[in-house]
Computed example of a mutant assay.
Amino acid sequence: MTGPRFITFEGIDGSGKSTQARLLAETLMAQGNDVVLTREPGGSPGAEEIRQLVLTGDPDRWSAETEILLFTAARRDHLEKTIQPALAAGKTVICDRFADSTRIYQGATRGDLRAMVDQLHSLMIGREPDLTFIIDMDPETALKRGLARKSGEDRFEDFGLPFQETLRHGFLALAQAHPKRCVVIDGNREPEQVASEIAAYA
């Protein structure tokens, strides 16, 4: 068993990070850890309502600035209602996406808004993960996989392949900037192989 940790999964749409977050949660629970598996946007009732606003509809529904405010509001509610209570209770929290997604999706790819994202994060969130896995995958393959899900929450996939390629570069740059926290995992393999490597780090 390990003490409470906050572990996040990041990556482009369709990279398999949600599957890997679930598999790691199952592995840690099998080892006797108390684990909370959650997601963003979402993870609390209020944040789940905001999720529907930002992940559905026309790609141009919101400006990048409005998205930053919506994601930050959802994250604050998630932090208050789910993440902080779980960590305080000694549980490990595994989250499918966190602030790094906002830094890349809105801050780095839809205008030069990274400073705004970081400022809002500092003011309203003030918490970084203990460990972040970035699932790196070929953007074209990942995009096809993401669209094939037909989840109805594919607003960002609808921006197309160039957007996903920009996202990938953004996440890799983020990993280089934060090498102590971020681990890049090759997602172009069978899920079991990817999960095994992640479990070795976790």
Rank of each mutant, 00 (worst) to 15 (best):
His121Tyr: 03
Glu80Tyr: 07
Gln84Ser: 09
Leu123Asp: 13
Ala21His: 02
Lys150Val: 13
Leu37Val: 13
Arg155Ile: 08
Gly42Asp: 04
Pro162Asn: 02
Ala115Tyr: 00
Arg97Gly: 06
Glu197Asp: 14
Leu120Ile: 15
Asp58Cys: 07
Gly126Ser: 03
Val93Ala: 00
His169Ala: 14
Asn33Ser: 10
Thr72Gln: 00
Lys150Asn: 10
Glu49Ser: 15
Glu67Ala: 05
Glu65Lys: 15
Gly32Met: 12
Pro45Asn: 00
Phe133Pro: 01
Asp154Ser: 02
Leu172Val: 01
Glu80Pro: 03
Ile134Ala: 01
Glu140Thr: 12
Glu153Arg: 13
Gly126Ile: 07
Glu10Leu: 08
Thr166Leu: 10
Thr141Ala: 11
Gln176Arg: 13
Thr2Ser: 12
Leu131His: 09
Arg5Cys: 12
Gln176Tyr: 02
Gln84Arg: 14
Gly90Asn: 04
Phe133Lys: 01
Thr66His: 09
Thr38Arg: 04
Tyr201Phe: 14
Ile83Cys: 01
Ile134Met: 05
Ala202Gly: 10
Ala47Phe: 03
Leu161Ala: 06
Glu65Leu: 14
Lys17Asn: 11
Glu67Gly: 04
Gly146Cys: 12
Gly11Met: 04
Lys144Cys: 11
Ala195Asn: 02
Pro45Ser: 00
Leu161Asn: 01
Leu174Lys: 03
Asp130Pro: 07
Leu147Asn: 07
Val36Tyr: 05
Ala99Cys: 10
Arg110Asn: 07
Ala148Cys: 06
Ala30Leu: 14
Thr8Asp: 07
Phe163His: 04
Leu28Tyr: 03
Gly170Asn: 05
Val194Met: 00
Gln193Arg: 08
Pro191Tyr: 01
Leu147Lys: 11
Lys91Pro: 07
Ala202Leu: 02
Ser15Tyr: 02
Leu37Thr: 05
Ser44Thr: 11
Phe6Ala: 06
Gly187Glu: 00
Lys150Tyr: 00
Ala73Pro: 09
Leu120Gln: 08
Lys180Asn: 14
Ala73Arg: 08
Ser196Ala: 15
Leu53Ser: 08
Asn33Thr: 09
Thr82Lys: 02
Arg61Ser: 15
Ala202Pro: 04
Arg149Val: 05
Gly16Asn: 06
Leu28Ser: 03
Thr27Cys: 06
Leu123Cys: 12
Lys91Ile: 10
Pro59His: 00
His178Val: 08
Phe163Gly: 05
Leu37Trp: 04
Thr92Val: 15
Arg110Lys: 11
Thr8Gln: 11
Met1Ala: 14
Thr72Met: 00
Asp13Ile: 12
Gln31Leu: 11
Ser151His: 04
Ser101Ile: 03
His178Arg: 12
Arg155Gly: 03
Thr2Phe: 06
Lys180Asp: 15
Glu65Asn: 10
Glu67Asp: 01
Cys95Arg: 03
His178Thr: 11
Gln52Gly: 14
Thr56Glu: 12
Asp100Ile: 02
Glu192Val: 15
Glu140Cys: 09
Glu157Gln: 13
Ile12Asp: 01
Arg51Ile: 06
Cys95Trp: 04
Gly3Trp: 14
Leu37Lys: 07
Thr66Arg: 10
Arg22Gln: 12
Asp186Lys: 01
Gly170Cys: 08
Ile50Met: 01
Thr27Lys: 06
Ala148Leu: 11
Pro4Asp: 03
Gly42Cys: 07
Ala148Thr: 08
Thr19Asn: 04
Ala200Asn: 13
Arg114Trp: 00
Gln31Gly: 14
Leu55His: 09
Gln119Ile: 11
